[in-house]
């Protein structure tokens, strides 16, 4: 089973990102589960969401404690909560950021960290405002490319089927993030 934990702030779309990832994996024939942890829901509060993906039926209803991947949609969460909690040794953290100061990187420890500026991509595609960009589809595109958990076609189809507004802009944001990661990997 592949387990992904999303950390975001209320309004960023962590729950939707977790859902879209599940939808994309389901389209590729996997069994899935997507589960938001509801705390005190208000704009700006830390939000956690989980996605489980497996080729066998998923029966475990508990939360994710040992993720294979962690997606951090707001870097300010890194000093607020322990986003690395339980991350598997070979696990990976995707952070929505252009760069991170050294002291923040140290908080993330030995884990493999990948940075993608999903906020800039979302803003460029008119998703949310500059102050509050809705980064779920951009971060999903980047995550799909990095993790190889789902393909780009499935991501696009999941957006088509489940995103109610600005469908093309959301798909374009996902594609741009995917391509950015692909280019980054190519240049390494």
């Amino acid at each position: 089973m592949i387990q992904i934990r999303f950390h975001g702030r209320g309004g960023q779309g962590a729950q939707i990102a977790s859902r879209l990832l599940a939808d994309a994996a389901f389209l590729e024939g996997k069994d899935v589960q997507s589960y938001p942890f509801f705390g005190v829901e208000r704009r700006g509060a830390p939000v956690t969401a989980f996605t489980k993906i497996d080729s066998r039926p998923i029966r475990d209803k508990s939360m994710i404690y040992e993720p294979d991947f962690v997606v951090v949609m707001d870097p300010s969460l890194i000093t607020a909560i322990d986003v690395t909690a339980g991350l598997k040794p070979e696990g990976m953290i995707l952070v929505n950021a252009d760069t991170l100061p050294e002291e923040i990187m140290q908080v993330l420890g030995d884990a493999k960290v990948v940075l993608v500026d999903a906020s800039a991509i979302a803003t460029a595609h008119g998703l949310g405002s500059k102050e509050n960009p809705i980064v779920n589809t951009a971060i999903l595109g980047a995550f799909a490319r990095l993790s190889k958990v789902v393909g780009l076609d499935a991501v696009k189809q999941a957006i088509d089927q489940n995103v109610p507004r600005k469908v093309d802009k959301n798909k374009d944001a996902a594609i741009e993030a995917w391509t950015l990661v692909e280019e980054k990997e190519g240049s390494e």
Binding site: A22, Q33, S34, P36, I58
Partner: peptide, 12 residues
């Protein structure tokens, strides 16, 4: 149905 475990969890 259990709150959140079922109500808000998406499955096939």
């Amino acid at each position: 149905e259990d709150a959140f475990y079922l109500t808000h969890t998406a499955e096939a």
